[in-house]
Simulated assay, not measured.
Amino acid sequence: MYEGIGEGIWDQSQSHAGDTQWGDYLGSVDFEDGAVSFPLKSQTTHKFMLRSDYGFVWQSIASGSLKPVQQQSPSKTVTETETPNVGDTKDNELDFSVEGQENRTVNDIKDYYYYIYQRTYHLPDDSIAKPNNIIMTDVLPYGVTVNFDENMEKDEVKEEEEGIYNSNTEDVKLFGTDGKVISLDTVGQVWVEKVTINGQKRQKITYTLSDAQITALDFNGQDFSWQIKINHDEELAVSPAFEMINEANVEFNSGKDYTWDHDTYPVKTKITPNEFDINLHKIGLEDENDTSDGISLSGAKFTLTKADGTEVETTGMMENFHFLN
């Protein structure tokens, strides 16, 4: 026999933070605290009874697990689209690893977006329980940055580490399965950390959902998502290209035996040196004060040296050259 001794709070506008309280509505972060399970074996007929000493009790029967279940691996895209995609088709036009987009660059694009999509399981068919914690981490590639307030005070617990800032930046957002923003409601949900990896200065983003955000998520078998607004350093462009490869990680954490984390597949962007043409017209002047049009030097020879050491000899009076900058 199971006996309920807690207090289920069915009104979503009320707090249920008491030691013996739980949110008595589907989608609450602790809804499963007010449930019991009856294992079903081989027979097709099962008898059990539900009763209440108060004369009335709200009851429901579901086939889902009493514990959270493992999530699917998340996916990642890189795009200029300013809102996440709802549905199975995802914009990913800036990823040069996609077939047919091998020559795609992010040259001269000031702001664009990473999206991390996480597929939900079904409530209550797969489980009646949501994860206790959902955490997204993303170490941005060298040269890629997200805006945040560098003047924010470091967290006291982590102040000895290289540079962790509680920024709650507006450039990292959470979207529900309906494509609408789920706002931040707790200080310290978004950390932007300065880290050094293989001698390169990079940024690490950690986004931890609050209980209110997890409650607001509709676990309906569709994707919720994070959006990271990014930009890159054009000065890193080298020939033939400077590549920026990125993947993220999503963790569902409900304690021992019910914690899983999965990486996304990497997305790849690149910048290339800008190309331009110049004309060289060789003339001779008497001295630095000569203001005439000069004398044609069609027979003179000049040598241009490329950054890689390759030399190009010029002999004509006017010649065209193609440069990478």
Score class of each variant (00 low, 15 high):
residue 2 Y to W: 14
residue 8 G to V: 08
residue 11 D to W: 02
residue 15 S to V: 02
residue 21 Q to C: 03
residue 25 Y to A: 00
residue 26 L to P: 01
residue 27 G to V: 02
residue 32 E to D: 15
residue 34 G to N: 02
residue 34 G to R: 03
residue 40 L to P: 01
residue 42 S to Q: 11
residue 47 K to V: 11
residue 48 F to P: 03
residue 63 S to Y: 00
residue 65 S to E: 13
residue 66 L to F: 04
residue 70 Q to N: 06
residue 71 Q to R: 09
residue 74 P to C: 05
residue 75 S to F: 02
residue 83 T to M: 12
residue 83 T to R: 04
residue 95 D to P: 13
residue 104 R to T: 15
residue 104 R to G: 04
residue 107 N to Y: 09
residue 108 D to V: 05
residue 115 Y to E: 12
residue 116 I to V: 15
residue 118 Q to S: 15
residue 120 T to R: 06
residue 123 L to H: 02
residue 128 I to K: 04
residue 131 P to D: 13
residue 134 I to L: 15
residue 136 M to L: 14
residue 136 M to H: 06
residue 136 M to S: 11
residue 151 N to F: 08
residue 152 M to H: 05
residue 152 M to P: 00
residue 153 E to S: 06
residue 166 N to V: 11
residue 167 S to T: 15
residue 174 L to N: 08
residue 185 D to E: 03
residue 185 D to I: 00
residue 186 T to Y: 06
residue 186 T to L: 02
residue 189 Q to H: 02
residue 190 V to N: 13
residue 190 V to A: 01
residue 194 K to N: 14
residue 196 T to S: 08
residue 200 Q to K: 14
residue 201 K to E: 15
residue 201 K to Q: 14
residue 203 Q to D: 05
residue 204 K to G: 04
residue 204 K to D: 04
residue 205 I to M: 07
residue 207 Y to E: 10
residue 208 T to M: 13
residue 214 I to L: 13
residue 216 A to K: 14
residue 218 D to H: 07
residue 221 G to R: 00
residue 226 W to N: 07
residue 229 K to T: 13
residue 232 H to C: 01
residue 234 E to R: 06
residue 234 E to M: 06
residue 237 A to W: 00
residue 240 P to H: 03
residue 246 N to R: 04
residue 246 N to F: 02
residue 248 A to F: 12
residue 249 N to S: 11
residue 250 V to E: 04
residue 250 V to F: 11
residue 253 N to A: 12
residue 254 S to M: 03
residue 256 K to D: 14
residue 256 K to M: 12
residue 261 D to P: 01
residue 261 D to G: 07
residue 263 D to Q: 10
residue 263 D to I: 02
residue 263 D to G: 07
residue 265 Y to H: 10
residue 269 T to P: 05
residue 279 N to V: 13
residue 284 G to E: 04
residue 285 L to R: 11
residue 287 D to P: 09
residue 289 N to W: 12
residue 289 N to I: 00
residue 289 N to C: 05
residue 292 S to N: 04
residue 293 D to A: 12
residue 295 I to N: 10
residue 298 S to Q: 14
residue 301 K to Y: 05
residue 302 F to E: 13
residue 303 T to K: 15
residue 304 L to S: 07
residue 305 T to A: 06
residue 305 T to D: 11
residue 306 K to S: 15
residue 307 A to G: 00
residue 307 A to C: 04
residue 313 E to L: 11
residue 320 N to V: 09
residue 322 H to M: 05
residue 324 L to P: 01
residue 325 N to R: 08
